[in-house]
Structure formats: structure tokens, C-alpha cells
Design a protein around this nucleic acid. Structure first.
Length: 865
RNA sequence: GCCGGUGUGGCGGAAUUGGUAGACGCAUCUGACUCAAAAUCAGACGCCAAAAGCGUGGGGGUUCGAGUCCCUCCACCGGCACCA
């Protein structure tokens, strides 16, 4: 055994061993319980960043632990390889996105291997390859047949200078990112997936996902946004024809307080009213032109304009004026609302502004209503008043009664509304999965026949920023209609990349199948036992994946309702931010490695200066690692210097996985120091002769104490890895154990035997986190097997046994002393021992002992007054 | 505004079921080794001059006992946001 710890040598050797033995190749085995450990696959942006390292280390630790627990583990990896950054890089380098993407994949794959992750590369999935995305296309056609996919017009951002559609992230302050031109809204035909059909099931099931963090479940539930209410029809006459204007409300109990109705600018009734009203027409136009951003809408002033139209109140028959309001959303409910100024804050503001009547119809605990200013209680629930037959009814009674009355007149019904909208998947972009449709002058839109799949995306085009290059690529666009055989045009829109990531986890289970999207192996591996990834995917990716799985289930392709049993959302990786703000010009950010922090003699930071010039820089606190703040740490440089094990150890030790992790060079150095100490401890032990047989009779009390600590540690680490997923506390416990080993006098054979057991178990316990160094140390400890093939060790109950136990003694709840008693001492004995203690007696003094509380194995509290 | 979360030493964090607050690590200080530095090893390290006292964002409560439970207020972070 080498005397010094040299990570570069041992890491390469361990990785070679796993590679040569095919250690991580997962094989279906019905006799063994499986464990599918899934990490979110990366976008191949160029190089791994620390966020990836953290994500995949968490997954690898869980995978290796479950493997040692005897599970048949699958831990796959792939590439979310379509998307906009590749197009941008292509423009910058004048190279096709495909080349850039595949180069990045090669680099990042090498980095993942260098980190020692136990991945099954035979199942690698790359979404930009035809053998993957052909199944996007195939399933899209199945969805089209079922009506789950359908066409409708949608609004896109249009850059008038580049003549191109912009993605939301390419619109900055309402202007195109490249041209700076003001973005316009355009209506174009797009394809949608009817996720709203599954809204109820997606909501119901997310409540059942107990292995998911509460906040993710809440975020999904809010996003789906179920509300129960009543759709109410207000009859009116248009060109002599009877019609009804529908509104949706959750407060039907306030129906008698309606003094106006308001429709969205996009509502057909607004368009009709504007026909002969130039002023209204320009107002409607203004509303439509306004910002697309919903956040801006929320803070906008409420504006409206009266139309010449009126509708009839469905219960009272009263005439109610119709307004166009900029605060009414076309996309939610019916695009129209009933105005009840007395009990809705927005309607109140609107009514005050335009001097509309305010009519109180709800009484809340007899409070006195005034129309001077809005009071929070106006919006609360209460009892109906000034509502005719409905007076005195509580909210739910009133709603039921009114809904029944409306229903009998054909003017309303109970209804559930959703905030969730259908998923628009068309993107007017090149680097994505082609939508398999053909436009024929005679036959219209014709699906590409299954036998002609995949529609292959030409991978040698270079976008120039002005529109989708597929449009100019005749070999792609020009085709024959599959139905009539005449010349036709191929659809050039591609799919949202969220489509690619909505089912990759199923494909891992059937990656080798080139005749079907998925096969029966999905039934063995899925659902994923553990999914790990960033919180930024809490809503869209996870919701789309759940939806996609349910669609595939309804198509009979999988027997699975939910794809991920347990979800772990890992925290961000952060680092210090330093900058200088010149008198003129832009703020300059300095990487923390270029900065030296000065401290006072107590270690309190007093300032920071740039190493290069010794002059001060300002501290910007701590923030997520990013290019813009120049506070990233390159994993590769770190691995080159300290090795993968140190990177993995620091990542797992510095914080529990769900919390954000602050990078610290000194902390990482500390992790390296620990591995050196571990190496040295084994080296010292092995050099002194190594193993000796464990003979209980020869052990000193100190030996027995150490052995108890060894097995207590094992018990804690098992719980921390398996149940709590708090790797930081597991590592801390092993560190404590090694501190105890270092202090232990190990000359006698019995003592050496205990130390041998301690080191052996420490190596096993650490092996999921630092697999390379433990691979080497396992052999150094005299084993001919590989540590990766070892089972998780068992706690020896014999070792935990102890004769006496130390209890703390409190007087009136304050810690005062300690006593040692026999482990089986009765309560009376413990009580007597505590009262006999000299320190206890001093604190009790002249007081009378009122009560003595004994908590077995823990403490004694003497209550005296 | 609504929903969710978090507040513990100089720092990251620990305390799992109401029972020793600050494990483990970082930083800092002292010492050993060294001509010296680094590395390494040993020790100190919540506040306060203090054995006493105080101390887990502030205030109040329940309890023999509260970081943990209840009420209330404050601050910060995240999500949704004119959703009728």
C-alpha cells in the first residue's frame, strides 16, 4: 500500500475495474427487487457545472447504497439535446447545431465518467437522434387520432425585422433580443395537447404522491388551479336574435349584487360593439396591444369603456350594462365576468372609477357597509341580504339554490374551471423534433404514415437568425401528399423540447428496442423509485411527464399512472460574489479565486481585495453560481487538482441535499484533508500488521466503547442514507468515528481487532460517497473482492450492549450534573443516585424537593421549590 | 394579494419522538515540529471579567422541561398572481 493518498492513480484504476467488469450494466431480473434511480438528464451545454455534479452525486450515492442493500439498480443517463442554445451557438460559430451538440456530449460524457458515476451507458438516450425522436412523432400521431393532439390558432411573438418567431426568452422588455425591434403578437395555427382533459386526475394523483416534497405538490396543485363555481347566462338580443352572454363565477351567492358585466377586449361581443363605435374600437385595440406579460397585467390600472349593449339579469330581469374591461382575461372561464362591486375588490375599483352603482347583498356579522373605500371584509362570505327569496341563506345554500333556479331556466349550471391551459407544442424553430404532418392543397393537413417515420431533421443546416432554415430547405419541405400523391409541403414547425423530456425515463427501460417505443421492460423498472433534479422543473417538466405517462397508459402502451414515486429536489450551488463598480461603465465581477478576504484576529471578515492589485473589491454576498456574476467553479479544474472523491465528498458533506450549498475552497480542502487522514489511518493499521481476530474476552472497556461507537455509527449511517437522505450527517458520524479511532490505543491484538473492524466498516459506509478511495482501501485491508460488490453491513447487537449508562441531572430544568448508573437500574435507584449527587445537593440547598422526573436512559430532573 | 418555506456561533450546518443547544467541518487563536514557511500533529473556540447569569428572529403561552408544540408580530427566500 502506498503511503500517500494519490487520487489520480486510484481513481483511474477503480474506474477501469468497473468498466472492465461491466459493473453498472443493469439487467432485468424478476427474482430480484429493482431500484430505478433517475437523475434529470442534462442539456449538453458544453461542460458540466457544479449543479450537475451535485445532482448526479446524490443519485450515485443513493444508487450505490441501494446496490449494497441487494437491489437490482438501474442508473441511466442521456442528453436533452434539442433546443435553442444550440441554434445560437451555431450562428456564433457558423457550424450546424448537431456538430456543436455532439461535441459537447463527448466532453460531458468524459467528465461524468471521470466523476465515477455508476451509470449504465448501454441505455444512453440522445433526444436529437432519429431513433429517439421518431417515437415523439409516432406518439403525436396516436394523440392526433385520439383527439388529444389538435390544431388551433395561438399567439406568438413576432420580430418584424428578422421576420421570425421569437421564443419567450428571446423577448427582452418587449423587444427582440437580436434586433431590438418592438415585438408584435401574431396569430398562427399551432398544435396543442389536451392536458386539461387530465386536469382532475393530475390534481387528484399529485395529492397521493407522498414521496414528493410538499412544496412541489402545492406548486403543481396551484398551477392546475381548480375552482368550483357557476356558469351563468345573461340573455340579450342581437340583430333580432336571442343569445346569452356567459360568465363564470365562484360567488354566485352575490348574483343579486350585479350592476354591470364586463367582457375581455378579445371577446366577440366587444368586437361586435366596436363595429359602430370608433372610440370603443380604439380602446379594444389598445387593450389588445398591451404587454403580453401577465405580471405586468396584474399591476395595470383598471380601465374600461361602456358599450351600447345591455343584457338581462337572469333572475331579476333587470337590464345590466355591458362594459369592456382591460382586467378581464379572455383565456380564463368565459372571457366575461359579472360585476359585483360591493363584494369584489376589482369590481369595486372599477365601479368607483366609472361611477357605477354598488349594491351590498352579503351581510358579514352585521358590519356596516360604506361605499367610501374598500374594506377587506366586503370580500368575505356571509349571509345573503337584499336578495329577495335568497335572503338569510348562507353562501353554499345560496349558491345551490341559485344554481338550481338558473338551471331550471336554462341559464346556468354548476361548473369546474381550471387555470391550466392546453399545452401548445409547436415551435417555429429548426433544432427540434419535426412535427410529422404534410400540408396538401387538396387534402389539407395529412399525417405522415407510420411507415414513413421518422421524419428526419436535416442535421447540416446553419440557422442565420432570420426564420426557420427548414423553410428554405427544399429537400425537406417539398414532398408528396401521402393521400393523393400530389406535390405537397412538409410542416416545418418542430416540437417543444419539453416533449423530448416527457418520456425519456421510459425509453431508458427499452432503449435497445428499434421496433417499438417501449416494451414490457418498462413494467419491471418503472415507476422510478427515486427522481432527482432541480426545483426549477417543479412545475412544467414534472407535470408534462405525468401527463404523457397517463396518455401512454390510456393508449395501452404502459401500465403506469405516475412515473416517479419519490422526488428529491436538490438545492442550488452558490458562491461568493465580488465586484467593482467603476465611476463610469459597467460593474466588473471577480471570481472568488482572484479575491483574498481579510479577517480580524477572531476570524471575522473585515474586507476583500483583489490579489492582482491588492486594492479592495466590494462583496455582493452569496448567489447562485452563474456566468453573469463570474462566481462559478469549474468541476474539471477541481477534479484535476483534488480528484473526484473530494468533489463528491464536499458536495455531500457541506449541506443536506435539499438546501442550497455554498461553495468554499477551504471547505473542499477540508474534505481532501479528511480523505488523506482516512488513507493514513488505514496505512498505519496495515503497516502495524493489519487484522487480528476479535476476541470479546480480551477487550478492555475502552475497546468495548470503541466497538459500541462503531456499531452505533453504522446504525445511524444506515438510517441517514436509507430513510433520511441526510448524507451530511452520515459523513459527520463517520468522521467522528475516525476521530475516535485515531485516539484509540491500539497495541494489543484485541484493540487492533476492534480498530480493524472500525476501519473496515468505515470504508464500507463511505463507499457510496467516495467509491474510488474506498475501492483501493478495501484491497489494502486485505480483501480480494471489490468493495462495490459488498453487501451493506449489519449492526451487531452484541456490540451495542452496555452495563452502565450516564444520565444528565437537571435541577429545575437546568443542567447541573451527571450520574452513572447500571443500565437496568430502577427508577427508585436512579432517583436516589441523583439526589445523592453533591452538585445536585448544592443547587437544591434549602429548597424542598417537590418532584423527581426520571427519563430512562436520558436524564433526571429534580424539581425543587 | 394568495400559497409554500426558512430564521440556531464569525461561516456551512447538527440536535430524528418535547429531554445535555451548537455534533461534524470551515475560519480564527495558541502550542509542538522546522533555520523558516508550508504540510502535519496537539489544544482553545456561543456571549460576558465571572463558578453565577444570558443565549436558537421579537413578544407571549402550554410544560417538571421548548430550537422543537400553541398564539402573535417581524424579516428573508420561493411559487402563483386582475383566475372572477
Amino acid at each position: 500500500m502506498n503511503e500517500t493518498y494519490e487520487p489520480s492513480l486510484i481513481e483511474a484504476a477503480a474506474q477501469r475495474y468497473w468498466d472492465d467488469s461491466g459493473t453498472f450494466r443493469a439487467v432485468e431480473d424478476l427474482q430480484r427487487p429493482k431500484y430505478y434511480c433517475l437523475s434529470m438528464f442534462p442539456y449538453p451545454s458544453g461542460r458540466l457545472h457544479m449543479g450537475h455534479v451535485r445532482n448526479y452525486t446524490i443519485g450515485d450515492v443513493i444508487s450505490r447504497y441501494m446496490r449494497m442493500q441487494g437491489r437490482n439498480v438501474l442508473q441511466p443517463m442521456g442528453w436533452d439535446a434539442f433546443g435553442l442554445p444550440a441554434e445560437n451557438a451555431a450562428m456564433a460559430n457558423s457550424r450546424p447545431p448537431a456538430q456543436w451538440t455532439y461535441d459537447n456530449i463527448a466532453v460531458m460524457k468524459r467528465q461524468l465518467k471521470a466523476l465515477g458515476f455508476g451509470l449504465d451507458w448501454d441505455r444512453e438516450v440522445t433526444t436529437c437522434k432519429p431513433d429517439y425522436y421518431r417515437w415523439n412523432q409516432w406518439l403525436f400521431l396516436r394523440m392526433l387520432e385520439k383527439g388529444v393532439a389538435y390544431q388551433k390558432t395561438g399567439t406568438v411573438n413576432w420580430d418584424p425585422v428578422d421576420q421570425t418567431v421569437l421564443a419567450n426568452e428571446q423577448v427582452i422588455d418587449g423587444r427582440g433580443w437580436r434586433t431590438g425591434a418592438e415585438v408584435e403578437k401574431r396569430e398562427i395555427p399551432m398544435y396543442y395537447l389536451a392536458i386539461t382533459r387530465y386536469a382532475q386526475e393530475l390534481l387528484d394523483d399529485v395529492q397521493q404522491l407522498e414521496g414528493w416534497p410538499e412544496r412541489v405538490r402545492t406548486m403543481q396543485a396551484n398551477w392546475i388551479g381548480r375552482s368550483e363555481g357557476v356558469t351563468i347566462g345573461f340573455p340579450y338580443t342581437l340583430n333580432g336574435e336571442s343569445r346569452t352572454l356567459k360568465v363564470f363565477t365562484t360567488r354566485a351567492d352575490t348574483l343579486m349584487g350585479v350592476t354591470f358585466v364586463a367582457v375581455a377586449a378579445e371577446h366577440p361581443l366587444a368586437a361586435h360593439a366596436a363595429l359602430h363605435d370608433a372610440e370603443l374600437a380604439s380602446f379594444v385595440d389598445e387593450c389588445k396591444r398591451g404587454s403580453v406579460m401577465e405580471a405586468d397585467l396584474a399591476t395595470m390600472e383598471k380601465k374600461g369603456m361602456r358599450t351600447s349593449l345591455t343584457v338581462t339579469h337572469p333572475l331579476t330581469g333587470e337590464e345590466v350594462p355591458v362594459w369592456v374591461g382591460n382586467y378581464v382575461l379572455m383565456g380564463y372561464g368565459e372571457g366575461a365576468v359579472m360585476g359585483v362591486p360591493a363584494h369584489d375588490e376589482r369590481d369595486f375599483a372599477f365601479a368607483k372609477k366609472y361611477d357605477l352603482p354598488i349594491r351590498q347583498v352579503i351581510d358579514v356579522a352585521g358590519q356596516v357597509y360604506s361605499t367610501d373605500a374598500w374594506q377587506p371584509w366586503y370580500g368575505e362570505t356571509g349571509t345573503c341580504i337584499a336578495s329577495g327569496n335568497y335572503d338569510g341563506l348562507a353562501q353554499h345554500e345560496a349558491i345551490a339554490a341559485m344554481a338550481a333556479a338558473l338551471e331550471s331556466r336554462g341559464l346556468g349550471s354548476l361548473q369546474v374551471q381550471w387555470r391550466l391551459r392546453d399545452w401548445g407544442i409547436s415551435r417555429q424553430r429548426y433544432w427540434g423534433c419535426p412535427i410529422p404532418l404534410i400540408h396538401c392543397g387538396d387534402c389539407g393537413v395529412v399525417p405522415v404514415p407510420d411507415k414513413d417515420l421518422p421524419v428526419v431533421l436535416p442535421d447540416d443546416l446553419v440557422p442565420d437568425g432570420s426564420g426557420n432554415p427548414l423553410l428554405k430547405h427544399a429537400a425537406f419541405v417539398e414532398c408528396l401528399c401521402p393521400r393523393c400523391g400530389k406535390a405537397a409541403r412538409r410542416e416545418t414547425d418542430t416540437m417543444d423540447t419539453f416533449v423530448d423530456s416527457s418520456w425519456y425515463f421510459l425509453r431508458y427501460a427499452s432503449a435497445s428496442n428499434d421496433t417499438a417505443m417501449v416494451d414490457e421492460r418498462v413494467g419491471y423498472w418503472l415507476p422510478a423509485d427515486q427522481y432527482i433534479g432541480g426545483i426549477e422543473h417543479a412545475i412544467l417538466h414534472l407535470l408534462y411527464s405525468r401527463f404523457w405517462t397517463k396518455v401512454m397508459r390510456d393508449l395501452g402502451l404502459v401500465d403506469l399512472g405516475e412515473p416517479f414515486s419519490n422526488l428529491l429536489t436538490q438545492g442550488m450551488v452558490r458562491n461568493a460574489i465580488y465586484f467593482r463598480k467603476p465611476a463610469s461603465g459597467r460593474v466588473v465581477y471577480y471570481n472568488p479565486t482572484e479575491v483574498e478576504v481579510t479577517t480580524d484576529e477572531k476570524g471575522m471578515p473585515t474586507g476583500a481585495r483583489l490579489k492582482a492589485d491588492g486594492l479592495p473589491v466590494e462583496s455582493g454576498g452569496i448567489g447562485t453560481m452563474s456566468k453573469s456574476k463570474n462566481n462559478g467553479v469549474d468541476p474539471q479544474a477541481f477534479i484535476d487538482r483534488y480528484g473526484a472523491d473530494t468533489a463528491r465528498l464536499f458536495m455531500m458533506f457541506a449541506a443536506p441535499p435539499e438546501l442550497s450549498l455554498d461553495w468554499s475552497d477551504e471547505g473542499a480542502e477540508g474534505a481532501f484533508r479528511f480523505l488523506k487522514r482516512l488513507w493514513k489511518a488505514v496505512h498505519v493499521h496495515v503497516s502495524a500488521g493489519g487484522a487480528a481476530p476479535l476476541v470479546a474476552a480480551d477487550m478492555t472497556p475502552a475497546d468495548r466503547d470503541l466497538r459500541r461507537l462503531v456499531h452505533q455509527t453504522l446504525s445511524k449511517v444506515t438510517d441517514d442514507y436509507g430513510r433520511r437522505r441526510t448524507f451530511n450527517t452520515a459523513i459527520a458520524a463517520v468522521m467522528e468515528l475516525l476521530n475516535a479511532v485515531a485516539r484509540h490505543e491500539a497495541r494489543q491484538p484485541a484493540a487492533r481487532a476492534v480498530v480493524h473492524e472500525a476501519l473496515t466498516l468505515a470504508v464500507l459506509m463511505l463507499s457510496p460517497v467516495v467509491p474510488h478511495v474506498t475501492h483501493a482501501l478495501w484491497q489494502a485491508l486485505g480483501h480480494t473482492t471489490a468493495v462495490i460488490d459488498e453487501s451493506w453491513p449489519c449492526v451487531d447487537p452484541e456490540a451495542l450492549h452496555q452495563e452502565s449508562v450516564t444520565l444528565v441531572v437537571q435541577v429545575n430544568g437546568k443542567l447541573r450534573s451527571q450520574i452513572t448508573v447500571a443500565v437496568d437500574a430502577d427508577e427508585e435507584g436512579i432517583r436516589a443516585a441523583a439526589l445523592a449527587d453533591a452538585t445536585v445537593q448544592r443547587f437544591v440547598g434549602a429548597l424542598t424537593v417537590r418532584k423527581v422526573i426520571v427519563v430512562r436512559g436520558k436524564l433526571v430532573n429534580v424539581v425543587a421549590a
